[in-house]
Amino acid sequence: MNPRTSPGTFAAVVALSTALAGCAGSSASGGPDGSGNRFVAGDGNAQEIKAADRRAAPDTAGTTLESQPLKLADLRGKVVVVNFWASWCAPCRGEAPALEQLYKEHKPKGVEFVGVGFKDSRDNLRAFERKFKVTYPSLFDESGQITLAFRDVPPNAIPSTLVLDRQGRIAARVVGATTYSKLGPLVAKVAAER
């Protein structure tokens, strides 16, 4: 039998494709509830949530990679960008410089960034932060429980990014890798809200 057509080879290709798609993310269509009406039109994988349809982010808490306690609820009153990432995720490496640049630009305006290091070891996550010079804190989510708490507007893939408004409601999300030009306008728009 030709190895290109063997069932084992086909299964391996399907498994690899599925794993890569999960890391890279995909475009979401419609709202997370399947209604299709929760999001303002976006550019594929970037979506803004209408103010009237925003839901509160879960009051997640945990410890950072430096073992410091961190609660999202303590950041209410500020715009918060929450990025779900892992050291084993290639698209996460690609977006890290843009996230850090946006963090440095928007921090003086009262915008906070919080990473969520998903299903990874603390050592690998810290090495990633050193390599990419990430200076904002990340919650350590080895078990995936913090990420699971966001099931109402799930990340859907690693990486994914959520933008929370000053009331702690989810105002926008980017499923899959983001860029400076994709995330920057979303952050600026939510930061301009009063």
Rank of each mutant, 00 (worst) to 15 (best):
S121F: 00
T147F: 04
A15M: 10
F150Q: 10
L139C: 10
V40A: 06
V81F: 15
W85L: 07
S143Y: 00
P3E: 10
D59K: 11
G42F: 08
R122S: 12
G110N: 11
V134K: 13
P155K: 09
R54E: 11
G34I: 14
P97Q: 01
L70A: 12
G115Q: 07
S6A: 09
F113D: 02
Q167D: 14
G44L: 02
A56I: 02
A57R: 01
E112A: 07
A149L: 05
G117R: 06
A86K: 02
V175T: 03
D59T: 07
K50N: 04
A19V: 09
T64M: 13
R4K: 14
S27C: 08
G36T: 08
Y103E: 03
G62N: 14
L125K: 01
P185D: 03
V175S: 01
S6Y: 06
K133Q: 15
W88D: 12
K107C: 07
D152H: 12
P91D: 07
S138T: 15
L65C: 13
R169K: 10
G31F: 08
D33I: 03
S29F: 04
V80K: 14
L70G: 11
N37I: 06
L20N: 08
G25H: 01
A73F: 09
Q68D: 12
V114E: 15
F128I: 11
K189M: 03
V81R: 11
L102S: 05
T178H: 03
C92H: 07
E48N: 01
F140Q: 10
R169P: 01
I146W: 13
A188D: 13
V82P: 04
S26V: 00
C23D: 09
Q145I: 10
R166P: 05
R54D: 04
K189Y: 06
V187E: 03
G62S: 05
F10K: 15
I49Q: 00
K131V: 05
P108E: 15
F10M: 10
V81G: 09
D165R: 01
